[in-house]
Simulated assay, not measured.
Amino acid sequence: MELEALTGRVLSAAFRVHSVMGPGLLESVYEAALTHELRKAGLRVATQVEVPAMFDGIRLDVAFRADMIVETLVILELKSVEALAPVHSKQLLNYLKLSGLRVGLLLNFNTVSLKDQIVRLVN
């Protein structure tokens, strides 16, 4: 599946979750609802995926976890915070680099308008 089409489907599902659930819930609630919505749409979703870190040729057991990976192509980093901070984008960019994936979406559900709290990053 083309990345643009896939990210479009992911965002459609995220908008649906946000419109039904609204802002102010825990990140884990949005993760469960979005996982359900994406799987209902026929997409493969892995949650809380360990992203290994390497240093000097060894694997470091530091347990970075990506919130979701859709179709083994797109990392989703979900937040439910007052406002996105620069560190949130840096976190997603690091996950992209460590995983070797190209595209990631940072979504903050704790907002009146989800469309204003979406960051798309490309590695």
Rank of each mutant, 00 (worst) to 15 (best):
I75S: 05
L43I: 12
V103C: 05
K40V: 11
E2A: 04
T47M: 04
V122A: 10
L26G: 06
M54R: 14
K40P: 01
S113F: 05
N108C: 09
L43N: 07
I69R: 00
N123R: 13
L6S: 02
L84Y: 04
Y30M: 13
A32P: 07
T35C: 13
A46F: 09
A33T: 10
R9C: 01
V10A: 04
V20H: 03
H88R: 07
V49N: 06
M68A: 11
L96V: 02
S80P: 01
E4F: 07
E31R: 12
Q48N: 14
N94T: 15
L121G: 07
Y30H: 06
L38P: 02
L43R: 11
E50K: 06
A63M: 08
I75K: 01
S19Q: 14
K79N: 06
N94E: 09
E71F: 12
G100H: 04
L98I: 08
L96D: 02
G24R: 11
L93D: 01
K115Y: 08
L84N: 04
V62P: 00
V17S: 02
V87F: 13
H18G: 01
R9N: 01
D67I: 00
L6C: 07
L43C: 10
L105E: 03
A53C: 13
V119R: 15
V103K: 09
A83N: 08
Y30A: 04
M54Y: 15
A83F: 04
I58L: 11
H18A: 03
S19R: 14
R44Q: 13
G104I: 04
F64A: 01
I118K: 03
V122F: 11
G24E: 09
A63C: 12
L26W: 08
R44E: 14
E37N: 09
E50N: 06
L93V: 06
V81Y: 10
I75E: 00
V74A: 02
T111K: 10
